[in-house]
Design a binder for these strands. Structure first.
Lengths: 332, 332
DNA sequence: CTGAAAGCGCTTACAG
DNA sequence: CTGAAAGCGCTTACAG
């Protein structure tokens, strides 16, 4: 391995001078600069970032802890983080925890030891204990989740408004009997927001009907199973609003297999705009969160915080979109 | 920031001793060990991995360059890499290049400066020039791609055998007229393997019919467009073998929108077993590559190489599976 | 079992 | 504009 010392020796200058030309940190005479550059070129010397990091106390490493990279929205957020990071010279240390608290804690410690300058937690649920450990690290930290926590910088969309708007859209399309499918029995604050948005739309339009189902898990499979039950009630409503796209697709597939046609018999809408929603037939109408932007905006916030700006605390809300596709039918 | 020096001072020992108890590298008397541990506990001291890395010349960092993290198979491979890495204490520096040669090169340099101990390139296509730069880094490197390169450690499945077996499966189900949809006009060696496997099955069964389409791109959209053309010929065959799942789903969707029923009118099969294949209706019958294993096996190879084992060179083949689902019909 | 010292590859006052 | 020296936070022979 060739070091700054070798370059200095070969160029017949001090290592200070080599450092200066590498970093462009202080004036160096053209002649000397040329000599150093030539040696660097010839030897293929590359500065060792570990050594540099030790003295500058900068790692330019951002730790990203995700629950499951395979979820498409997670990949999109990570992409946003990464692209903005790249613009500012930050790199990503990726950690997938698969929702294991133990793994999350291990990674948090690791990121600390590796001198990560900032942290992202990306996923639906992080235990309060993990949040506390993360805070204890005393690093800039941003929390991407659908469940809001206090004391944390947080990026999200206004779920209440989103579900209000989506439900209103269904009503405008002529639907009067609209059911709702929730994810868990023990609701997160975000889920409560969603339900409240849905209910407000029902009430504002003076509709009577509103039926609620609970999946009791976020696996596609659970929604599929529940879908069989919902299918039996299908004559009671013309549309169903689902807490998220995974559920919506599970329900749609269950309908398909039980002879209920979407959207002819029942319209289905979701939330999240996951990639799969465009692959299923009919294509799923859903609420789009700007995941890439969530990552990008979060990264900008984080970089600001790393630079010492204390201002961007608290919650940041991004705009949502209603992705109108084929799973909703206009009723006469 | 609290350092090893602080701990040493507080515990009234030398920093050497502190280092020894942290790393369990040399015997330390129980009494002294207890004292040191107590101080560590009280101060919350955590070793600085950057400093440690500088002296040990170990970073325990593995650079992973992917083209697109949003592809589900990439996420699965990364998962395999990460989980095995975690077992051996290696961490992942994630770099998404989105197929940009410039970005790939930049990341390669970066990973070198960060002292990454090994490299993964994950994606369909990497330019030869990039491969050369990667090799020039002189680090253990593993290449995950569907296009085989010489001089590189490579993990894949036997595409030829996979397509042979899949086509035979269709024939056994009674299909006699089977078309093939290829991805690009300028074929990769893997694509040639696939086509050869398909053709061999046709020939071995003394079937006459074999029609070939070329998508000319790997976007779902392109396959959808081509699907319209294929739909017009639909009476000429009863099954179509697609080069990959993205194409298969594009074709299926095009069939759906053009009134061709899958599998009743035409059976469709793909390759890759991407997540979306289980979400579409009918569920896609496809060839499964064990992506998680690809990542895991690759990581084991890489770690071996890092440890100085020179043996695991060249190509490694993993078993494939035929995922029989709903997009194939048995013909009388 | 323990400590003093050298050194990993850099950056950065400081002095000239 | 340039160099000698100190130091970042550790590990590891070496000596005792």
């Amino acid at each position: 391995m060739i070091t700054i010392k070798d370059v200095a020796r070969l160029a017949e200058v001090s290592i200070s001078t080599v450092s200066r030309v590498i970093n462009d940190s202080k004036p160096v005479s053209p002649e000397v600069r040329r000599r150093v550059l030539k040696v660097i070129e010839e030897t293929g010397y590359k500065p060792n970032d570990v050594a540099r990091s030790l003295v500058t106390r900068r790692s330019y490493l951002i730790g990203v802890i995700v629950n499951n990279l395979a979820q498409s929205y997670v990949a999109d957020i990570v992409r946003g983080i990464e692209e903005i990071g790249k613009m500012y010279g930050y790199d990503i240390l990726l950690c997938s925890s698969y929702s294991s608290k133990e793994t999350q804690e291990k990674y948090l410690q690791l990121l600390d030891r590796k001198q990560a300058e900032g942290l992202f937690l990306v996923g639906n649920k992080f235990d309060d204990e993990i949040i506390e450990i993360a805070r204890g690290l005393n690093k800039p930290c941003i929390y991407f989740t659908r469940d809001v926590h206090e004391h944390m910088n947080h990026i999200s969309i206004d779920s209440n408004a989103a579900f209000y708007e989506m439900t209103n859209y269904l009503i405008k399309e002529g639907h009067k009997k609209i059911a709702y499918v929730s994810d868990f029995a023990d609701r997160t604050s975000v889920e409560n927001d969603k339900i409240a948005g849905y209910q407000k739309a029902i009430e504002d339009n003076e509709l009577q009907y509103s039926k609620m189902y609970v999946v009791g898990g976020n696996k596609h499979n659970r929604a599929y199973e529940l879908g069989k039950t919902i299918a039996k009630d299908a004559s009671e409503f013309t549309a169903v609003v689902c807490s998220n796209d995974e559920i919506a697709i599970g329900v749609m597939n269950s309908f398909f297999d039980n002879g209920i046609k979407v959207p002819d018999d029942v319209s289905v809408v979701g939330f999240g705009n996951i990639r799969e929603g465009k692959f299923v037939r009919p294509e799923l109408t859903t609420i789009g969160e700007p995941y890439y932007d969530v990552g990008a905006v979060g990264m900008r916030m984080l970089i600001k915080m790393i630079k010492g700006d204390k201002t961007p605390q608290g919650l940041m809300e991004l705009p949502f979109t209603i992705e109108k596709r084929k799973s909703v039918k206009t009723i006469g």
